[in-house]
Design a protein around this nucleic acid. Structure first.
Length: 648
RNA sequence: GCUCGCAUAGCUCAGGAGGUAGAGCACUUCAUUGGUAAUGAAGAGGUCUCCGGUUCGACUCCGGAUGUGAGCACCA
């Protein structure tokens, strides 16, 4: 006799051990059909799993997030089975669930083509029709190695061999197909209703660029056709917001072959850039930063001293002149230490916060470049805080306050915090790493917000906190960073005189809020789909005449708005008003002002917002008030004012 | 950097057994002075990314380079 507690709190008694499928059936035949998996005391299991003792049990269906995950994972198996039916020589490797779908990596003699994908999808549909039972099997490790070796699955053999001998492993079989897998999986291949293979690409075996490249097929699976359709539409929407496309259409910037990975900013894009820069300048001024500027070319020896050359010399641009080797600076830190080093510093000077909008060049691998998001020349809103160990925590805390304010002003309300700790390749003693990691951990805990630990992902000189924004498409965009560094200052000879007259080495905090202007602007463009909030819009308002009669009046309106500090243009072309409205709407200008004879006579403007809202006719003063209020709101209009935490 | 794809007018894209190319928008000119998402007409615009090869002939086929896209790897 055992008692099963269901999610609604009700209980059911069974005479003997009972499977999830049987429990589902005893509740109702509809639920039995919908069952994809089960949850026993919070552990996800197959529907064939037998409950042997009292437990809380839930039937997992497609309405459950875990159910959708199971569906996708099983769909990866379904795809692998189809691939092996069509291409018997293809070897299977791994096939996990990812956000929104799944992939499976195959070793095959040639890449798969779009036509192959169609054929694979068709075969998948056939296997769905066959409604094959999916069975779980347990095998001893060595037995499994033997079995997969016989099947000619070398990659699976390698995976299984990396598991300690003597362990029992679970396998899943559906028809002729069998795969090593932790599970759980759907009970049969008839459960799939909506899936689509989306793309193929190469991917390294075990994520190691020294090993062979496999053929990865991406797919997506959903509980029904409608959700699949919505998913595909969301992808289309995201493509429309692509900052590379909008950057071209809105005339913000361009790239060209002669300068790969480096931006040509156009007047409008540069306006956005400069608005952001002066905003950051103001924020930094208000927060005790001293702005500096340092050279673009610095003798290579400085990079050797700082330790960057040892790790990144391949990624640095170099210049030779007068028999001297220079590097175009790939980062600002060593230069900031040089500024700190001028003149003897006292503990009274600390914390010293140096900031620079520092242009950096890095020879990024060609395949990693992506519009503004990853470029070879970028400008960081860089800052280095030289301080004592005791000051670390409050400095980190202060920076976070600054950061959250900045993000809110740009219209981002969700921030994800991550702590990256010591990597394998690093400098310095472990005791110092302990201390540095501890300092960041405590600062994170002090915020009261949740954060995520990412072991081994720190910089070579210190651990870091990374701040990622959630954009309106739900994607995470890493922007800000705060790094504790006990080593660079020492390497570059930075010192201060302490209270007891001893010489001490300052701690260096590396920090950036936006990350790089290029990337941040890319994120903004996509977040807003090009319709930047008024304070950022390159052109805030355009004045249009209806006939030539009002040209002079429009010029006056433009002039008067410009004098008040607004970014305004006028469009006096001999075109119909509808045509002009359309053009400036497409250009996403926040306010469209129309002046005909009526307005010219009464000294007013007719105001329309880019979204189509008609604000009616108002005096120029009234419009100025409206515009000022909008600008003063920054990007907060889209926020609820409070910083929300993002789900990790 | 790796795998695969792509590169045609300012932009978005067609095209063809291998016989030097086309649309829409934009641009220029003319007409039109029109009240909230496209007025009409005419004109101009191309070494079909670059370098080699095959061929009587290459934008088209082959090889390479460069750039770029998706993914992987990398990211101080």
């Amino acid at each position: 006799m055992l008692t099963v507690t269901l999610p609604d709190g009700s209980t059911r008694d069974y005479e003997q051990p009972v499977s999830i499928a049987e429990i589902a059936h005893s509740i109702g035949p509809g639920l039995a059909r919908a069952a994809l998996a089960g949850r026993v005391d919070d552990r996800l299991v197959d529907t064939s799993h037998v409950v042997e003792a009292d437990a809380s049990v839930a039937i997992v269906t497609e309405r459950d997030n875990d159910g959708v995950e199971v569906l996708r994972h099983s769909c990866a198996h379904l795809m692998a089975q189809a691939v092996q039916r069509l291409f018997p020589e293809a070897q299977v490797t791994i096939g996990p669930v990812i956000e929104g779908g799944f992939f499976y990596d195959f070793a095959y003699s040639r890449p798969f083509t779009p036509e192959d994908l169609e054929a694979i999808e068709k075969t998948m549909a056939e296997i769905v029709k066959e409604d094959l039972t999916v069975e779980r099997k347990m095998l001893d490790r060595d037995e499994a190695v033997r079995l997969f070796r016989e099947m000619g699955e070398d990659y699976k053999v390698e995976i299984i061999e990396s598991i300690p001998a003597g362990e029992t492993l679970s396998f899943y079989r559906q028809g002729e197909f069998m795969d090593l897998c932790r599970g759980p999986h759907v009970p049969s291949t008839g459960k799939f209703k909506a899936f689509k293979l989306t793309s193929v690409a190469g991917a390294y075996w075990r994520g190691d660029s020294n090993r062979e490249m496999l053929q990865r097929i991406y797919g997506t699976a959903w509980p029904n056709a409608k959700e699949l359709r919505l998913h595909l539409r969301r992808i289309e929407e995201a493509e429309k917001r692509d900052h590379r496309k909008l950057g071209k259409n809105l005339g913000l910037f361009h790239f060209q072959e002669e300068a790969p990975g480096m931006v040509f900013w156009h007047p409008k894009g540069w306006t956005v850039y400069q608005v952001i820069q002066s905003y950051m300048k103001k924020v930094q001024d208000e927060n005790g930063y001293l702005e500096i500027n340092t050279p673009q070319l610095v003798d290579f020896s400085l990079w050797e001293k700082s330790g960057h050359a040892a790790k990144f010399s391949e990624e640095m641009f170099t210049v030779e002149s007068d028999n001297r080797q220079y590097a175009i600076k790939p980062m600002n830190c060593p230069c900031h230490v040089q500024v700190f080093n001028q003149g003897l510093k006292s503990y009274r000077d600390l914390p010293m916060r140096l900031a620079e909008f520092g242009s950096c060049h890095r020879y990024e691998p060609s395949g990693s470049m992506h519009g503004l998001m990853r470029v070879r020349n970028f400008v960081q809103d860089d800052g280095h805080i030289f301080c004592t160990e005791e000051q670390i925590q409050s400095e980190v805390a202060d920076f976070m306050q600054l950061l959250f304010k900045v993000y809110r002003d740009f219209g981002f309300n969700e921030v994800l915090l991550r702590l990256s700790t010591r990597p394998e390749k690093r400098v310095g003693a472990d005791a110092l790493w302990d201390q540095a990691e501890d300092a960041l951990r405590q600062a994170l805990n002090a915020t009261g917000l949740d954060w995520e630990l990412v072991p081994g992902e720190g910089a070579f000189y210190g651990p870091k906190i990374e701040y990622s924004l959630r954009d309106c498409m739900g994607r995470l965009q890493q922007c800000g960073t705060m790094q504790v560094d006990f080593f660079t200052a020492e390497r570059l000879g930075a010192q201060y005189v302490a209270e007891d007259n001893s010489r001490r080495i300052p701690v260096m905090l590396h920090r950036a809020a936006l990350g790089s202007f290029e990337r941040f602007i890319g994120v903004l463009i996509e977040h807003y789909g090009g319709a930047l909030p008024t304070w950022l819009a390159p052109v805030q308002s355009v004045v249009m005449n209806i006939t030539d009669n009002q040209a002079e009046y429009c010029r006056k309106v433009e002039e008067s708005l410009k004098n008040k500090g607004f970014r305004v243009t006028s469009d006096l072309r001999n075109e119909k008003i509808g045509f002009k409205i359309r053009e400036h709407t497409i250009q996403k200008t926040p306010y469209l002002l129309v002046a005909g004879d009526r307005e010219a006579k009464s000294g007013t403007v007719s105001v329309r917002k880019r979204g189509g809202d008609d604000l009616g006719t108002m005096t120029l003063d009234a419009f100025c008030g409206h515009l000022s209020a909008d600008v003063a709101e920054y990007g907060r209009a889209s926020s609820d004012g409070a910083l929300r935490q993002t789900e990790t």
